[in-house]
Computed example of a mutant assay.
Amino acid sequence: MKSPISRYFRPEVLREHAYTLASHPEAIKLNQNELPYDLPPELKEELFSRLQALPFQRYPLPQPIALKQRTAEMLGVKPGQIQFANGSNVIIQALILATALRGRVMVLDPTFSVYEIEAKLFGNRVVKIPLNEKDFSLPIAKAFAQIKKTKPNIIFLANPNAPTGNLFSEEALLEIVTRARCLVVVDEAYFQFSQLTLLAQLKRFPNLVLLRTFSKGFGLGGVRVGYLVAREAVAENLSKILLPYCLSTVSESIAHFALDHQEYFKTIIAEVIREREKMVAAMRVLPKIKVFDSAANFILFRVKNAKACFERLLKAGILVRNVSDRGHLKNCLRVSVGKPEENEAFLHALSAV
């Protein structure tokens, strides 16, 4: 029997499920692709002293002008090419709202689930391009055929892709950008771990949009800072969709702090990359486990029974992500790269499964 409340909501909202994630605070947390280290005490003390000077009763600017200027100088673009928001998820939603209402949104399969969730909430048909099953590479010919057939309103491509972790070539991505007659959003959330970016291509392609976040390489997942880089006209039109004050004064201040300490974060990223390669090598020695290449801060692997493996790892105090409910990911799990001792604990537990 339908709830009487349901009459107040659009059918698209009633059909969808909210994005959820189970919490297991007792376990080593290797399930959300976070940087493994919090700020050290001396940096936190420095940060807190800055925050104490902020006037909390004052609204922030509609857009963080100083942060946009600084980021633009760092990237070699104009400030008008950048839009900040309370996490890149907010920008994903705004891009769909700006381009596709009851239209067509093209995504890869598998990929970051928020693209599909937000697309459906606005009544869009989701056009999926299944990645090649063997290695999750991009089937360019199939992508071209779907672009020609469905004429999408917007395309989302994560690079490195999540949850697979593999990297698509610049050539392949730009072929899609060239063929598409819509915005093509390349989500570079993990680019600090791959060092591949299409930033230099923004001058060539007016429909290319890049997404970035402070959650991964800067370890600020709890602060919620994301931004878009695109042509100025694209950024300007998106600003009409984004709500005013969509980045708090506190978040902006912490983002500035992170940019002040980029060398610290670079050392952590380098450690994560080294640990990733060590983990991949160690996992490939284990029997009955297929490990996929990764250019991100996580590793996808396939086991005989994902549900049983997940539960046994959790019982051993290790929390990973079960992603086996998505296309081509049958019996697949994903593990974030943690601190060296956390990775050792994971490998020990996995070898005992």
Score class of each variant (00 low, 15 high):
residue 45 E to M: 11
residue 344 E to K: 13
residue 247 L to D: 03
residue 155 I to Q: 11
residue 322 N to P: 12
residue 33 N to H: 07
residue 134 K to G: 03
residue 175 E to K: 15
residue 300 L to Y: 01
residue 200 A to P: 14
residue 127 V to R: 07
residue 327 G to I: 06
residue 239 S to G: 06
residue 291 V to D: 01
residue 114 V to E: 09
residue 234 V to C: 09
residue 2 K to Y: 14
residue 109 D to S: 14
residue 132 N to A: 03
residue 312 R to E: 14
residue 47 L to N: 09
residue 243 L to A: 07
residue 159 N to L: 01
residue 183 L to I: 02
residue 136 F to E: 00
residue 235 A to Q: 03
residue 322 N to V: 05
residue 227 Y to C: 11
residue 262 Q to R: 15
residue 39 L to H: 03
residue 31 N to T: 04
residue 332 C to Y: 11
residue 210 L to H: 05
residue 324 S to H: 14
residue 43 L to A: 12
residue 327 G to N: 07
residue 204 R to H: 13
residue 275 E to P: 07
residue 279 M to F: 12
residue 156 F to Y: 09
residue 13 V to A: 14
residue 282 A to V: 03
residue 32 Q to Y: 08
residue 161 N to C: 13
residue 137 S to E: 04
residue 235 A to P: 09
residue 341 E to W: 10
residue 136 F to W: 12
residue 332 C to M: 11
residue 25 P to Y: 05
residue 273 I to S: 01
residue 346 F to V: 03
residue 186 V to K: 13
residue 275 E to A: 14
residue 91 I to P: 01
residue 74 M to K: 13
residue 211 L to T: 08
residue 18 A to M: 11
residue 335 V to I: 08
residue 41 P to N: 05
residue 148 K to E: 14
residue 201 Q to K: 09
residue 88 S to C: 12
residue 18 A to F: 12
residue 139 P to I: 04
residue 272 V to R: 13
residue 150 T to H: 14
residue 90 V to P: 00
residue 24 H to N: 10
residue 210 L to K: 08
residue 214 F to K: 03
residue 105 V to N: 05
residue 192 Q to F: 10
residue 255 A to M: 03
residue 195 Q to L: 01
residue 223 V to K: 06
residue 310 F to G: 08
residue 138 L to D: 15
residue 68 K to V: 05
residue 222 G to C: 04
residue 78 K to V: 06
residue 151 K to D: 15
residue 161 N to P: 02
residue 11 P to C: 06
residue 311 E to N: 08
residue 52 Q to Y: 13
residue 108 L to C: 11
